[in-house]
Amino acid sequence: MRLTFLLGEVGNGVRRNASMIISVVLVSMVSLFFLGAGLLAQREVSVAKGFWYDKVQVSIFFCTGQSTGVQSCTDGAATQAQKEQVKSQLDGMKPLVQHVYYESSQQAYDRFKKQFRGSPYLSDVTADAMPSSYRVKLSDPNKYNEVVASFEGQQGVEAVSDQSNVLSTFFKLLHVISVGAVALAVVMVICAILLITTTIRQVAYTRRRQVSIMRLVGASSTVIYLPFVVEILLATLIGAALAVGLLWALVHYGVEGLFNSTGSTGTLVSMISTADVWDFAPWLFAGAVVIALATAWITLRRYLRV
């Protein structure tokens, strides 16, 4: 079969079953959109959790030369002696204090750079401005108050924060969104598969005479199936492209537009960017191809006798 003939057959099929083909486009768009949204929510969780989250419950930040307006930092940057004092206090709080990690200003700056790549804030920040800190893991995270209380206001300590507490609600929300989106995606993928099956059966019906002639003259099953498969593949790929477009718009105008540029929360949690959408796009297209090919082939083998 020559390409022009194949394209002609595909064109005829699409024209004669336009509404069915459009519904395949829309259903695959919606299902892949939810799948992508679920994946992006998961990605957001891992981006926001960052490096310390799983290891740390409490962070003790030391004063920097730029710390202003904090009572305990009036002497400028924390001295080595002040840091050692904190360390020995922490050591004394075992077994509640399980692990202590030290992060220098430079390390903090490097991590910050990594986490906020592409952010307009990056250029305003220098390594000096990043506080060095002790990251503390507790044997019982619920007793974080004890640690917070003993270091808060101590000379050279700018702030003590309970990181997990701040973010856990946010992560729970993201997790629900992620699970919800993937669950919806599963339902929509089932819809897509059923719709593709119905569409192929309808297209096969409108083309039954053509197919019977093809069979009679000795066309191979591949030649008979190909126009159907190409039609469905095109429809799902268009659906996937629309889904990627929607996800891009969601992240670009929704996430980036609302959080990353205005700075309302951007300092606290780093957000996914459109680059993450492009990371997932090939997988969404691959998913579309797999759904289209597998469903089309099985349906054709079952309903289109050759």
Binding site: S212, I213, V217, G218
Partner: peptide, 24 residues
């Protein structure tokens, strides 16, 4: 085998009572 049937059918022309032409 089924996959060889097309080759057989290329050796045979078939005509029916109801013509079975493609209308378009």
């Amino acid at each position: 085998p089924q996959r060889k049937v097309p080759t057989l059918r290329r050796e045979i022309g078939v005509v029916f009572q109801d013509f079975r032409l493609l209308e378009g």
